[in-house]
Design a protein around this nucleic acid. Sequence first.
DNA 1: ATACAAAATGACGTAACGTCAATTTCAAGT
DNA 2: ACTTGAAATTGACGTTACGTCATTTTGTAT
Lengths: 249, 249
Amino acid sequence: MISIKEVTKQTGITVRTMRYYDQIGLLHPADKTEGGHRLYGEKEMKKLQEIQFLKTIGFSLQEIKEMLADENHDWFTGLKKQLGYISKEKERLEQIEGTLRGLINEIMLNGNIDLFSVQKLIQLYQQNMDKREGYLNQIFNEEESKLLQNLPNINRDDPETLEWIALIAQLKKHMSKGISAPEIQRLIKRMYEKEQETFGDNKEFVEKIWDIRKSPQKSESAGFYPIDAETLDFFEKAYEFYVKKKSNF
Amino acid sequence: MISIKEVTKQTGITVRTMRYYDQIGLLHPADKTEGGHRLYGEKEMKKLQEIQFLKTIGFSLQEIKEMLADENHDWFTGLKKQLGYISKEKERLEQIEGTLRGLINEIMLNGNIDLFSVQKLIQLYQQNMDKREGYLNQIFNEEESKLLQNLPNINRDDPETLEWIALIAQLKKHMSKGISAPEIQRLIKRMYEKEQETFGDNKEFVEKIWDIRKSPQKSESAGFYPIDAETLDFFEKAYEFYVKKKSNF
DNA sequence: ATACAAAATGACGTAACGTCAATTTCAAGT
DNA sequence: ACTTGAAATTGACGTTACGTCATTTTGTAT
């Protein structure tokens, strides 16, 4: 028989928690002193461990109470149900994670931001979730849809996406130096090569994407990350410049 | 200006929720009728959408209130913090998912189960989480540790693991028919082939694993799923029978 | 004017404790 | 036996984001 203090020492569980478990009938002390101090035995400590474990796998105290009370509890079914629940929750968090990464990337692209811009981004996001796929499937054929998967999807966390964002952000930063500046041309070169790597010679496909990018409305419908018109225009000119120079050799 | 009923119609948000948002100062109605009925305008509806969105990405109402109130809120930092929090939560759920799958598989192996067995499994689990890796690294060298990754890890959900579990479960089921029964020998054959596929000719390594399996204590320390001694013994005999027959041809 | 729908306020309940506050008990030292 | 300080007790309120009554008031159609 050990005191409540000993329990907290051995398990890290607080006194309040032990009192609470007693109160809700989840775990009563084995005995009490004359004065009413709680005393716990070996059995209780084991049960406490079980409770802790069942808590870590996401069961509520009420559920745990019922499970431990029922001699013939169907653990298999219970655990499968719990697994289903946990899996769903996990998927929800994965969704959220993707959305957050998307928003963060967009802010990285646009620089920090006032309430108004965030409102616009949020609206864009909500639209996209509903419409993006529909819109894209309408424009691209099946084969191209697969290629689209390779597009830097702003929700994703892969280094591919990050490099695109970094490249565009750098482009914006050095825009004032003009399209022929060596910094710019180095960036464009990298982008050109990346494009080749990703889409190969699929000219027509790349054209379609440019077409979408050039129209803010289309761009919004497609859920591409918003590059402002100025940057887009600058990029296009710098790109042409690069290609022309390249073909001169 | 629309009534609260209109709001619920358009958004699906309940009256209670609107009242609550009003109460905590998150979203006041634009105006009230003489009698005190709430009226909402365009601005409020937009704000409501933003609130909904920020809720879906996991912010609390208090946080949302502060974010929307602060003209110069640092969205970038806030979102990154939130991402960190969400990612952690997601990892926690992944952990739980693995544990649950593990427990479910063990129950599949052992048939359904009383409180006592579950207590033992839980204890085994808690031990494993702490000790398993340490113990295994002590016995196996680095190369072998990599091979160990191919071992049916009971926490995992892949078809490999599932087949091992199914095979052993079938073995148990038909055990009464003796080691030479054709059902048994077919199962053993499949297991033998799977073993070859997975570990190739790495005899020594397979020996070590058998050594661990044969000792309940070691098996427990290593966190292998618990196969009872009887089944293990039966398997061994059936296996020897199979190999002998095979080498006779 | 009446009746009925819709809205209002107020209150309690939820889950799993944390955090006071006021009082009582325990164990040790004198 | 007495004192004292630490430890334990009960009780109560706070937390989140509403749901769910119960009761009263307002709006609107006839």
